[in-house]
Amino acid sequence: MTPMLEIAGLEKNFGDVQVLRSIDLKVARGELVFVIGPSGSGKSTMLRCCNRLEEPTSGSIFIDGRNIMNALSADLNRLRLQTGMVFQGFHLYPHMTVLKNVMLAQTKALKRPKAEAETRAMDMLGRVGLAHKAKAMPTELSGGQQQRVAIARALALDPKVMLFDEPTSALDPELVGSVLKVMKDLNAEGMTMVVVSHEMGFAREAADRVVFMDGGVVVEQGTPDQVFGNPQQDRTRAFLSRVTGAE
């Protein structure tokens, strides 16, 4: 079976600085890939290349077998519907209610009829446990609630892959659990997911595979037990001892 997401020979330069040097990564249908690595190793950049928020310098990105690098910029908006993205800073639209936040791209980009979009939005809000907040403004929600709305906003577009960039890093510790729970349920229902995060506990429990990145390359990958329990590379060991040591 073709992988749901395939990154092949991905490179990205910012001016003279090479941030990604030939990344190869395959993510199977329903798989949850967990990406770790030191700050500045290019994790965010890699995720952002997957929906071309960042324009790759070279390489290919296949989503469900289709190379999105071949798409003209006019088709880009439709392609982006296939990838849902969740940001560290939530980025809800502060001038719209929660419901409108989840409905906007459905009606404007997917061209769903309003009634259908609303039903779908309420479904998704229910799924993240926030149906009762549909009429609230984003600023009236806690960080954890805002992040769950952001997940609902992405899910409502029926993406094939969900990309999470440090979804819990901006949250108070007691709010992290609710977001991780939503993510776990989502994966259990078969969603393909790439998660950049520092929540190692979550990785042990939910990840199918852990990928360690450093200096713009994938240094090591394997099951959580392999990577956390028996890392093969020095750089991985050094990173893990630093992170777990800090905890």
């Binding site: 908006n77 982006r80 849902g84 906007l104 791209a105």
Partner: peptide
């Protein structure tokens, strides 16, 4: 406006004019 607003809108498939008008 923080750039995150642009990115969030673009990531959900809104076009440039749609992002401008609605967000």
């Amino acid at each position: 406006l923080p750039s995150g607003q642009w990115e969030a809108a673009r990531a959900t498939g809104l076009s440039m004019p749609q992002t401008l008008v609605h967000v």
